[in-house]
Design a protein around this nucleic acid. Sequence first.
DNA 1: GTCTATATTTTGATAGAC
DNA 2: GTCTATCAAAATATAGAC
Lengths: 189, 189
Amino acid sequence: MQQENRKEQIIRVAAKLFKEKGYSAVTMRDLASSLGIKAASLYNHINSKQDILKSIIISIAEEFTEGMNVIQVSNNSSIDKLKQIVKLHVTISSQNIYGMASLNNDWMHLEEQLEYYLKLRYDYEDDFRNIIKQGIASNEIKDEKLDLMLFSMLSTLRSLYLWIPKKEDLNPKELADNLSNILINGINK
Amino acid sequence: MQQENRKEQIIRVAAKLFKEKGYSAVTMRDLASSLGIKAASLYNHINSKQDILKSIIISIAEEFTEGMNVIQVSNNSSIDKLKQIVKLHVTISSQNIYGMASLNNDWMHLEEQLEYYLKLRYDYEDDFRNIIKQGIASNEIKDEKLDLMLFSMLSTLRSLYLWIPKKEDLNPKELADNLSNILINGINK
DNA sequence: GTCTATATTTTGATAGAC
DNA sequence: GTCTATCAAAATATAGAC
């Protein structure tokens, strides 16, 4: 396990505070105070508050993009690709509980990187939609309300960061399996 | 249709801005500017920024509570109660697109009303969970992963405010029916 | 690498004229 | 009901000592 330097520590603690109150409501004094130093000292390690947000969001967004690229080129069925997507979200969310909050709620405060972020996001949704579409074409998935199915699955997956921390004894693989089952087969007996 | 007075207009426009940037990032000057007046003039109609947030969130939270109370006392099957919950979310979300953003993302900035809000929220989730539980007991719903089923449905329903605006020609009843079908029966063919 | 001191802007909110 | 003027506090960030 690699050692965490001060900059990484600042970003990690910032992400935690951003999850609790949102990016805009967290001050550099709040952040410094959480680290036991003065606000001015932060600037020896980071360029700006903006820059912290960028570090948090962009790295996670790129993880999703890379994960989706791997899934796309696999030769699995559409349903299996969906299961891989669920696993991707569970894995990344488990490892970035705090960062996922910023990704979901504070992306609009990105400035120079906003356009880049939005492109990654739209491309991801397009890839997701196309996998469902292929599943409809191959008769694996119901041929109705494509966008609504996408929205429903994506909403649940994007909210995982809120739910995972409430279940301490969570096995990521088991969660992914159970969640896949619910999303694909519903709750009906 | 009742006429909107200035206070109601302020709250409505504030909710829209809060959805775009979050409560903390919207200044009273932003809000005033959107209304074509000066920030100081706002205070002839409202007490504080806090008070605007409270007005937005609490009224919607109480709508959910009232809706859930009606559903609970009905004599419907558990599956039908779940369908009513879906309809409740679609209806309230359709009519409060902007307010739903604050309810979901800015509730932590409530101050005096925070405790009250959290009570409404927890009670709502408990009622929702109990309806699923009854469905399991009556053999309507799969007997597995109660909390995960609850989380999955609630995540989708709470995100409706993000999705509804993208579909202009939306019929709330049809949306509720289609969404119920997806949540209950899944996407599998 | 952290501190004190400080510059500059921006914030929510009030007083009082019209 | 809106304005101008203003306050006091809080914000991000920098300079320079240690």
